[in-house]
Design a protein around this nucleic acid. Structure first.
Length: 204
DNA sequence: ACATTAACTGTTA
DNA sequence: TAACAGTTAATGT
């Protein structure tokens, strides 16, 4: 059976349960490290980054999300504070639903619960692969791992069909490498036909 | 604001 | 010691 990787919660259901539609400006925090997890969030449009700053103040980006993705939902089940920030990168429109109603939806719509499990599994699976790639010293592995992860959310599987819409700095912050290393490695990968670069755009 | 290059430093295979 | 990632700084788009 081939299903679409992540459908998220149906918009009609979200609205009927009183989900608020909120607009966020670039750089605006949706939640911050240490906040209690009280809401379910699901993007409608825009871009959101999930990040964390280590003790030296260096940023590590956990993920960058596009349309129709939920985020920060695991602490909802744990009654824990967020261990990371969620920041809008582009102007973003996002559903915000109180925790209690989120659980009501799960109870009343079992399909949603299944779907959510589907999404969690997908994320868990690729995060496992990400961890393995990030543990590697080889920058090609790390970058490839990241790109495979990003590509996994999309239907297009053909080589060079997927446009990596990240700046080199963002790739660096996602992989824990330096921009210069990203640039050097991307060029190397292009020579090895692992990807294409057309006027600075990365096609994978 | 983002991308690239070069020259240098330190680490490691 | 040769390769290569990080650092710094200058320059290009």
């Amino acid at each position: 059976m081939k299903t679409i990787s992540c459908m998220k919660i149906d918009e009609k259901i979200l609205t009927s349960f009183g989900a608020e539609i909120k607009n966020y400006k670039p750089k605006e925090f949706i939640f911050q490290e240490g906040d209690m997890a009280l809401f379910y969030y699901q993007t409608i449009s825009g871009t959101v980054k999930i990040n964390h700053y280590n003790e030296d103040g260096k940023e590590f980006i956990h993920n960058i999300l596009g349309e129709n993705q939920s985020f920060g939902d695991s602490p909802l089940f744990l009654d824990k504070e967020y261990p990371m920030n969620a920041v809008a990168l582009a102007p973003s429109v996002i559903y915000k639903l109180p925790k209690g109603r989120f659980f009501q939806i799960l109870e009343e719509y079992p399909e949603t619960s299944i779907e959510l499990n589907n999404c969690f599994s997908h994320r868990l699976h690729y995060q496992m692969l990400m961890m393995q790639n990030m543990a590697s010293q080889n920058p090609i592995r790390r970058i490839k791992g990241l790109m495979d992860y990003l590509k996994s959310f999309h239907e297009k599987i053909d080589p060079f069909s997927f446009h990596i819409q990240l700046t080199r700095q963002q790739i660096a912050d996602l992989t824990g490498l330096r921009v210069e290393t990203i640039i050097r490695t991307l060029k190397k990968m292009e020579k090895e036909n692992a990807l294409k670069i057309e006027n600075k755009q990365i096609l994978y």
